[in-house]
Every structure is written in structure tokens, then in C-alpha cells.
Simulated assay, not measured.
Amino acid sequence: MCATYGGVPVSGKRVLACDICKSRNYSVTSAKKSDTRLTVKKFCKRCNGHTLHVETR
């Protein structure tokens, strides 16, 4: 059974970790599975600034 989010099938939850302090601050859901890691620039509370956040495995 596949989970849905707003009628779109979701492959699962992805967790994003700060590239500098490795703090796991964000989680996002994805509509499709990808081989490449998701990288997003987001605000980190521990670093107190916008840093690159990378998907953890």
C-alpha cells in the first residue's frame, strides 16, 4: 500500500541535515524516489545562519 499526500503518491520522508554542524533540522516528503541527494540552502538554528542542508541516507 502506497501512502498519498494530497492525492499524489509519496515515496517517503527525507531528512535534511546541516552540512556544517550535522544537525538534522528539516524533514520533507518527496513524490518520487531519486538517486541523487537533495541539497537545499536553509536556516540552521545551531549555526544561526543560512547553510547548505543535505539529505541523509
Score class of each variant (00 low, 15 high):
K41W: 08
T4Q: 02
D35E: 06
A3L: 06
S23W: 12
T4F: 01
A3M: 13
R46Y: 15
K42N: 14
K32E: 14
S27N: 09
K13F: 01
G6I: 06
Y26S: 07
H53P: 00
A31E: 12
K45S: 15
Y5N: 05
D35V: 04
C2K: 07
R24E: 14
T51I: 11
Y5M: 02
R14N: 06
C21Q: 14
V28P: 10
D35I: 05
S34Q: 02
G12L: 01
L16N: 12
K42R: 14
E55M: 05
T56N: 03
T4I: 07
V54T: 07
H53I: 00
Y26A: 01
V54E: 00
G49I: 14
S30C: 09
A31M: 06
V8Y: 00
R37Q: 10
K42M: 13
D19P: 01
P9D: 06
R57G: 10
N25T: 15
E55W: 05
V54N: 04
A17F: 02
T29N: 11
G7V: 05
K32F: 10
D19I: 06
K33G: 01
V10M: 08
Y26V: 01
A31S: 11
S23K: 15
S11T: 04
K45E: 15
G49F: 13
M1P: 00
G49S: 15
C18Y: 00
K32L: 08
R57L: 11
I20V: 12
K42G: 13
K33L: 08
T39A: 12
K42T: 14
C18H: 09
F43A: 07
S23D: 10
Y26I: 02
D19S: 08
H50I: 13
G6C: 14
N25V: 14
S30F: 01
T36W: 08
E55D: 06
C18K: 09
T36H: 00
D19C: 04
C2D: 04
K22R: 13
S11D: 01
A17E: 04
N25I: 13
T51L: 14
V54L: 05
